[in-house]
Every structure is written in structure tokens, then in C-alpha cells.
Design a protein around this nucleic acid. Structure first.
Lengths: 142, 142
DNA sequence: CTGTATCCTTAGGGATACTG
DNA sequence: CAGTATCCCTAAGGATACAG
């Protein structure tokens, strides 16, 4: 079942992005990677939205093939696997950030971290840099 | 079939956003509204990705219910219908902008408008303001 | 032009059992 | 822990044809 990546709908940057990210689960996994600092299969499974194991596997493979995450075994524990963001994956931080901002603004039920939001408005670049760096640090300090 | 909007998967701003936008077509319609300045049913149909009529109807209804677009008949032509962005819809410009930037950076096949991209980097806020204003102007000058 | 209505197919996804 | 393997089912989507 070696499907080549021929599922492109058109040649348009947005369409390109959506062909990779535009489904019900992928960006949720990205949220976990970026904001929840999750890196292991079981961590993703435990998220509130309850993704099924087969679907999660599928999405992680997709992200791997898209070179958005890498997969490696934990050097400290050979039975653990770590999924980590590549540079290409880190470059999605702005997208996720904007989704938070919009969601928090219009979702009246959910309380969102206010200090985070104002920070996102006043110092967007700095916030992105900070997120990026602390993720990089987390990955490299083993 | 009056399904209440009970399809929320969790209380999280990103999850909230994705429950509205996270499918194969919705953000493509948003792209057409924001960047292609499309406002009519037939315009959306003519996009490169070839959405089916029933799906398009469905998505436009969703966006209406989510109060992201409004629907009205063209005052200049009673047989035409205009779909237009609300304030809530205009607030999605940043998300779409970031999807363009990321897509353009990593999609090696598609040539993206370079001047637009550099502008997005150097004067993000100004660019968003400009887009927003010119869309508002387009809607109101009838 | 802006849709409805239908039919039909497939992909996406939930549940669960099982494996190295 | 990190998945595979199944089964099964529904929703999503394509392809028309047709209507106001």
C-alpha cells in the first residue's frame, strides 16, 4: 500500500498546507507537541480528545513522512520512543498560536490563559522564539 | 436533522477552532473569501480544487451557523447571493496568512508571490490591517 | 445562478483484542 | 510502553441530475 504523496488537490500554498494538516487530528497532535510538550505515544493517547491508537499511529507516520516530526528511541530508556519536532515542525508554531488566539477569543465556555494571550498580542515574535527555544532545549539535553 | 452543536471534543481553544475549521474544505473556502475575494457560490465552485456543490453548500451553512460568514442577496442583482466575512471571520486572517507562509516555505513546486511573503515577515500587522480594510470596503460599497 | 436531491463509494475513525 | 491487526460503521465526499 505504498501510496505516493499524490493527494495534492492543487498548487497553492494554503492547499499544500491543508493537504498535510487539514484533518481532524493532525493539528491536535501538533498542539500536544508544541504546547503540552508531549513526546511519547502514550502521552498523545492521554489527551482529552481520546484519539484511537490506530489513528494516532497513522497521523504520526504522516508527520514523519512530511518531515515535521522525527521518531527515535529514548537514549535513556530503550523501550521508550520519542517524537520530536523538526525545524519544519517548529515553523508551525505561528499557525497553532493563531488558532489558540482565535479559539480563545470566540470560545465563551473555555477559560483561556489570559496572560498568555496578552503576551501573544504584545510580543508575538518573542513568544514564538521562546517556545521554539525551550522545545529545542528539551530535545537536546539528553 | 437539527443536530445541536454537540460535536465538541474537549474544552481547549485549539480544539474549539479545529471543530469549526478542521476539515478538508472549510479553510479553502476561507482562503477564497480572504485572498481571492470570492463572494458567490459559483466563484467558490470554480476554484482549482473542485469542491462538489453539495459539500460547498454544507460548508457555507456551517460557516454561517458559526457566524463566520453572512449570506445576503446581492442588492444590485436579486438573483445573486453574496457570502461575506463577519468580524469573527476577519479575525481568521492571521491563521490563513501563517498557512500561506508555511506552505510557501516548504512547497518547493509552487511558486509563491515573493513580495507578499517578505511583506508578511516585515510588516505582518500592517498587511493584516490592509487585507481587513479592503475586504470591509468591498462589502460596504454597495 | 444557486442551490437540492440522490446515489454510491470510500476514507476516516471508534472499539477492542492482541503482540514484542 | 508502543504499537498492529481487525472489525465494523458512519460521515465525508464525488458524480450527476434536476429545480426555482
Amino acid at each position: 500500500m505504498t501510496t505516493p504523496c499524490n493527494k495534492r488537490r492543487s498548487s497553492c500554498p494554503i492547499s499544500f498546507s491543508l493537504d498535510v494538516l487539514g484533518d481532524k487530528w493532525t493539528l491536535l497532535v501538533m498542539r500536544d507537541l508544541i504546547f503540552m510538550r508531549k513526546r511519547r505515544f502514550g502521552d498523545f493517547l492521554n489527551s482529552a480528545e481520546k484519539i484511537a491508537t490506530n489513528i494516532l499511529t497513522q497521523r504520526l507516520r504522516n508527520l514523519e513522512h512530511a518531515e515535521i516530526v522525527t521518531r527515535r528511541t529514548d537514549p535513556e530508556n530503550a523501550r521508550q520512543v520519542l517524537y520530536e519536532l523538526t525545524a519544519k515542525g517548529l515553523d508551525l508554531i505561528p499557525v497553532l498560536l493563531d488558532l489558540i488566539i482565535w479559539g480563545a477569543r470566540y470560545d465563551l465556555e473555555t477559560g483561556a490563559p489570559q496572560e498568555f494571550l496578552t503576551r501573544a498580542q504584545t510580543d508575538r515574535k518573542g513568544l514564538i522564539e521562546e517556545l521554539r527555544n525551550s522545545i529545542l532545549e528539551q530535545s537536546s539535553n539528553e
